[in-house]
Amino acid sequence: MTPFALLTARILGKSRMDLVFAVLVPMSGLIGLTFLLRDVITTGQMNYAQYILPAVVVQAMLFGALTTTDRAASEKASGLSSRMRTLPISPYAPLLARMAYCLIRGVLALTAALLGAYLFGFRLNSGFGYAAAFVLMSLTLTLALSLGADATGSKAGRTEVASQLLLVPQLLLVMLSTGLAPVDAFPSWLQTFVRYQPISQITETLRGFTSGHVTAGNLATSLAWCIGLLVVFGPIAVRLQGRTS
């Protein structure tokens, strides 16, 4: 078994509870938001479960990134990162293992969100190509956010501080987005921010994939955000992993 596979299996073994939460958090978020808001927020022809699913998916990916921060910080704090550097393995194997785990977690969260939404009337009517694009964009976002979170955790090195740093901005970005409500539900002075911030752009694209209507400009913006985050956070995470203590 390769070091990468061993390290991934180790994380999976230690994170069973986290995988349970990967399933339960999007489901409970979906249940709570749907019952709370489906009768008060107008989403036109689209039912509310159909409307909100992308926001629940993005929220689940962001929540996964928070747990990645904790994992990277605890590996550094426990001295595991330093011990790994003394072994005859690639210095990037631990990072790759953590990212593989994040993708597995992301797939679980995505599946749970889709199943939960299906019970509330969500349907993916847009065909295989759009469905594949939906999954691919969700997982690209997961990977990008997880790399950033991993870098934050590796740098912080203190599990207590690490994930709390990211919780408040994540909360603000998700709630002040078109993920939960159309832009006209917000005060007029805030609408420009709400419309153009990354979570809104990505949720609009994901929503487009579920309905089969995606505007080129919106798709380009979302791809730019996902790939941009990947390009920025990837090298930082890799550099931190390769750096000696």
Binding site: L171, M175, L180
Partner: peptide, 15 residues
């Protein structure tokens, strides 16, 4: 953060 988010998102839609 929660107060700001809930208020700005929901004050126009919840009676």
């Amino acid at each position: 953060a929660f107060f700001v988010c809930f208020t700005l998102t929901l004050r126009k839609v919840i009676d």
